[in-house]
């Protein structure tokens, strides 16, 4: 059985039918890319998975737990971390305090320390700036902090919402390299992106969303050569 199964999901914003019968699966260890244009519903799906939005119908199952019935604040301790769009770091708190909040649900001090060391090793910039107030970091550093904060919960799966948004090409490459490393260390990745090219390079499989429904799905390598995908999303 898949690690995360989303089935026949329907989400409304008032009267607007934002997500229409969306179904997809994420297997353990995979990197799944959820692609699509602005407003296609990618962020809405992630918010529904982690309980910030409630679906009208459909089911979301994570390792046998029904996430629709689980309150948002209980989901992280099941092993699911969500890096929200626009980073959403706690801008008044220091880098270190942000990271500590990432481990909010964990009890074992030694394990938390170990995660902190791992995060600092992966993002040396965060260690250099650990006492700096998060709001004063650059966009790329804030993205690293948001990812580091999510990793502090020691997740089995990490949901990344537009991690490359607003970053310079050099930083985009750096962020994608980090996602690859996170995946190689055994964490499953569900990646929402507008940068289809970069995403398909690191993904195993991909789903393409168009105005709230899944228009295409398949292996990332096949999609990269699909003429339809090429013309619509890869700009070729």
């Amino acid at each position: 059985m898949a690690m995360l199964t989303v089935k026949d999901l329907n989400v409304y914003y008032g009267v607007i039918h934002a997500i229409k019968d969306v179904s997809f699966e994420v297997e353990q260890g995979e990197v799944i890319a959820l692609l699509g244009a602005n407003g296609a519903g990618k962020t809405t799906i992630l918010h529904t998975i982690t309980g910030l939005l409630t679906p009208k119908s459909g089911s979301i199952e994570f390792e046998g737990t029904d996430l629709v019935k689980t309150p948002a604040h209980k989901i992280v301790s099941l092993g699911m971390a969500h890096v929200p769009e626009g980073r959403r770091v706690f801008s008044q708190l220091s880098v270190y305090e942000n990271l500590k909040l990432g481990a909010y649900t964990r009890k074992d001090k030694n394990e938390i320390e170990e995660s902190l060391r791992t995060v600092y090793k992966r993002f040396p910039r965060l260690e250099e700036r650990k006492n700096q107030i998060a709001g004063t970091l650059s966009g790329g550093e804030q993205q690293m902090l948001a990812m580091g904060r999510a990793l502090m919960s020691h997740p089995k799966i990490i949901l990344l919402d537009e991690p490359s948004m607003g970053l310079s090409p050099l930083l985009v490459s750096e962020i994608f390299d980090i996602i690859r490393v996170i995946s190689e260390s055994g964490t499953t990745v569900l990646l929402v992106e507008q940068n289809a090219k970069k995403s398909l390079e690191i993904a195993d499989r991909a789903y393409v969303l168009e105005t709230g429904s899944i228009a295409l799905s398949g292996k990332a390598s096949d999609m990269m050569n699909d003429p339809k995908v090429k013309s619509a999303y890869l700009g070729e």
Partner: peptide, 11 residues
């Protein structure tokens, strides 16, 4: 500062 982000931390 951010209720949604706080919930994502498990608060």
């Amino acid at each position: 500062e951010d209720k949604d982000a706080a919930q994502l931390m498990g608060i």
